[in-house]
Amino acid sequence: MIYVYTGAIVLLAMLLVYVALYAIRQKDLLYAVIATGVVSLILSIVFLMLQAPDVALTEAAIGIALTTIAFVITIRNTARYENDNAQSGFNNKKE
């Protein structure tokens, strides 16, 4: 049973690094911000497995919900794509 537990921690740690790299390399900032939220989600599960339920609850409430919303509002007020900043907002579809 302890092997299953620690193996899950190893898998989640690898996934954490992969999602963080995705968030850095992505050109569409909305995707990058959602990937940052996913980093917080995985981190919350890892905190729960490392026996820190208080920290997991804080990360779930603040890291997933509030930080992601703040980033999304900022992208809505500025440009969505990393390369061009011709127009503001969500709806500048890049074709």
């Binding site: 963080a20 850095i24 981190l43 980033f71």
Partner: peptide, 21 residues
């Protein structure tokens, strides 16, 4: 891009929290 820089700051935060716990 400035939003990417802020994302990087929050990733540093996340790594430090994981290290502490």
């Amino acid at each position: 891009h400035l939003i990417k820089i802020v994302i990087g700051m929050s990733l540093v935060d996340a790594g430090l929290h994981l290290l502490f716990v």
